[in-house]
């Protein structure tokens, strides 16, 4: 595993800032966000019977095209990530699939922590906390399902057996349900939850304060940020 450089990145007020996301990571995140949201809305037109007015006629023609265009963006987002930030991509991918006792502890205490602010109850977390990993994992697995079933429905119409087509519709829907539930949670925590203010600014600016990193991503902060700084620390350097 390649070590990722996470240098301190300046200051905000009296707070020291730490780099959390590279430009490619942020770009991929937002392209994925936009594509996912557009796909969700245009998909809902045919999923929810009370939105059927938008599914047929001219609105239907438009949403069908928009859904396909957004699907291309959706597929492109992780490729942007992989091409422009391969080390972070692989690191994040590995993190999402790495689960241990700290994750169980985190998930158990998450409600108390996020509703009453019970500090100190949460096991230290890596670059992503267990909730973020759960969201990422669901998105990653669903991404595969979305792409496979989506391509079957797009290009396989008439050439795949009926049951394969009908099953694709169901799997596509189940993947929507799984991702939407975690998307709702994710959106709530970063937009509305008072303890997570920096989570969303870090996805715009790429940085978080050291205090936030220590509190929410202690393992990542001490293992990756501090150790890296220590390794690079050279008092005799003329720089």
């Amino acid at each position: 595993m390649a070590t990722i450089t996470m240098p301190l990145a300046g200051v905000r007020g009296r707070q020291v800032l730490v780099v959390r996301f590279t430009a490619a990571e942020r770009a991929a995140h937002w392209v994925h966000f936009v594509a996912f949201s557009v796909l969700l809305v245009t998909g809902m037109f045919i999923y929810l019977p009370w939105l059927h007015a938008f599914a047929g006629g001219a609105a239907g023609e438009a949403s069908r095209l928009i859904h396909r265009g957004a699907a291309v963006l959706f597929i492109a987002a992780p490729l942007v990530y992989l091409v422009f930030s391969p080390r972070e991509f692989l690191y994040s991918l590995k993190e999402s699939f790495t689960w241990g006792a700290d994750d169980v502890g985190w998930l158990k205490n998450a409600w108390g922590y996020y509703s009453q602010g019970k500090l100190g109850t949460m096991p230290p977390q890596g670059k992503y906390n267990s909730g973020q990993k759960l969201n990422a994992l669901t998105q990653i697995i669903s991404f595969g399902l979305f792409v496979i079933t989506g391509l079957i429905m797009w290009f396989g119409k008439g050439s795949v057996p009926s049951n394969v087509f009908l099953a694709s519709v169901i799997v596509h829907d189940l993947a929507v349900i799984a991702t939407v539930l975690l998307f709702m949670l994710h959106l709530y925590l970063v937009v509305l939850h008072p303890m997570m203010r920096e989570s969303i600014t870090s996805m715009f600016e790429g940085t978080v304060t050291r205090a936030f990193a220590e509190e929410h991503h202690g393992k990542w902060y001490s293992e990756r940020v501090l150790r890296k700084r220590e390794e690079e620390f050279d008092p005799l350097s003329k720089k």
Binding site: G117, M184, L185, Y188, M195, M196
Partner: peptide, 20 residues
């Protein structure tokens, strides 16, 4: 939605804030 609404009301009551 129900769970998130309850959580939001609880965070208001507990006056939670960002670590910063």
């Amino acid at each position: 939605t129900a769970g998130l609404a309850v959580n939001w009301l609880l965070t208001r009551r507990a006056r939670l804030s960002n670590v910063e």
